Amino acid sequence: MVSNERTISDSSALTGWYKSSYSDGSQSECLEAARGHAHVPVRDSKAVTGPAVLFSLDGWMEFVTAVKKGRLPHPQ
């Protein structure tokens, strides 16, 4: 199941997936995260059998905080 230290090749093997309450439901650009694991797995909600990227809890919290505070650069 684990491809390397930072990814999981088939994310459907994990449980606890959820989408943000801010998701508009259009399925166009949604991420899902999973609870209850040593690291925080994150995947594309449209690719449930695709890979997941693993974040440390601190790394995930820093990312979420940056998103909420608008600290990420916008693509051109």
Rank of each mutant, 00 (worst) to 15 (best):
D10G: 05
A33D: 00
T7A: 00
N4Y: 00
R6A: 06
D24I: 07
E5R: 15
Y22I: 04
V42N: 00
S45D: 08
V64H: 01
S28N: 15
S45T: 08
W17Y: 11
M1E: 05
W60S: 03
N4K: 03
A33M: 07
P73F: 14
A66Y: 04
E5D: 12
V48F: 14
R43N: 15
V64D: 03
D44G: 08
A66E: 06
H39N: 10
Q76P: 11
A47R: 15
G36M: 05
Y18P: 04
F63K: 03
S11C: 11
R71K: 09
M61D: 13
A38K: 13
E62A: 08
D10L: 08
P41G: 00
D58F: 09
L57V: 12
S11F: 08
S23R: 04
Q27V: 14
S45A: 15
P73S: 10
L54I: 02
V40E: 01
T7I: 02
A34H: 01
M1Y: 03
A33G: 06
S20W: 00
V48E: 14
V40A: 04
K46P: 08
S23Y: 04
R43T: 10
M1P: 02
R43H: 10
D58E: 13
S12I: 11
A34F: 00
M1A: 11
M1V: 06
G70D: 05
S11R: 07
L14P: 02
N4T: 03
G16D: 03
D44T: 11
R43G: 08
L57P: 14
G50N: 07
R6K: 10
L31Y: 03
D10I: 11
Q27E: 09
D44H: 07
G59A: 01
L72T: 03
K19M: 15
G70C: 04
G70Y: 05
H39C: 15
T49N: 09
S11I: 09
G25Y: 05
A66Q: 09
L31T: 02
R35W: 05
S3P: 05
Y22C: 06
F63E: 02
L31S: 01
A52Y: 10
L57H: 15
Y22Q: 08
M61K: 11
S11D: 10
L57R: 15
S26N: 07
